[in-house]
C-alpha cells in the first residue's frame, strides 16, 4: 500500500508539472518565456513520472534504464533550449514587448554566427539589428 501511495504521488506531481509546462507554453507571451516553462517543468515532470515507474516495478534492469533516461533528459533539455533559443534569435523571433533588457542585442555577428562580448553598433551591416526588429508588439 505504501508503495502505491509513493507511486501515485510521484505521478500526480509529475503530471501536474507537465500540465503546467503545457499551460505555460500556451500562456507565455514570447518564445523565450515559453521555453522557460517547457524545458524544466517538462523534463522535471517526466523525470518524476519515470521515478514513479521505478518505485512501482522495483526491478534493477528497469531502474538502471529509467535512471539513465532521467539523466539523459536533464542533460539534453538545456542543450535543446540553448539551440532553439539561438536559432530563433538568428531567425528574427521577437522578444515580448515587456522585456526590460536585451543584452544579446548586437552581440551576434551575422556573417560568422559568433557571439561577441562587445556589441556591434546597430547600424553595422554585421549586426542582426540591421536585418530584424528585435522587440516588437504583436
Amino acid at each position: 500500500m505504501a508503495r502505491e501511495i509513493v507511486v501515485m504521488s510521484l505521478f500526480l506531481v509529475g503530471a501536474f508539472l507537465m500540465f503546467l509546462a503545457g499551460l505555460g507554453l500556451l500562456r507565455m507571451p514570447d518564445l523565450f518565456l515559453r521555453m522557460s516553462a517547457t524545458s524544466k517543468a517538462g523534463s522535471l515532470g517526466a523525470g518524476l513520472v519515470l521515478l514513479g515507474a521505478v518505485v512501482f516495478f522495483q526491478d534493477w534492469g528497469i531502474t538502471a534504464r529509467a535512471l539513465a533516461t532521467i539523466v539523459f533528459l536533464f542533460l539534453t533539455a538545456p542543450v535543446a533550449a540553448h539551440m532553439i533559443g539561438r536559432a530563433a534569435y538568428f531567425d528574427g523571433v521577437p522578444l515580448w514587448k515587456g522585456t526590460v533588457r536585451d543584452d544579446l542585442r548586437g552581440h551576434y555577428k551575422l556573417s560568422t554566427h559568433r557571439l561577441e562580448t562587445q556589441a556591434t553598433p546597430p547600424d553595422d551591416k554585421e549586426s542582426i539589428d540591421a536585418v530584424v526588429q528585435r522587440i516588437d508588439d504583436h
Partner: peptide
C-alpha cells in the same frame, strides 16, 4: 549553464565565443 537552465525562471541562451 546546464544548471542555470534547469532552475525554472532562468534560461541560459548562449555562451560568448
Amino acid at each position: 549553464s546546464n544548471l542555470i537552465t534547469l532552475t525554472p525562471g532562468t534560461l541560459s541562451l548562449d555562451i560568448s565565443s
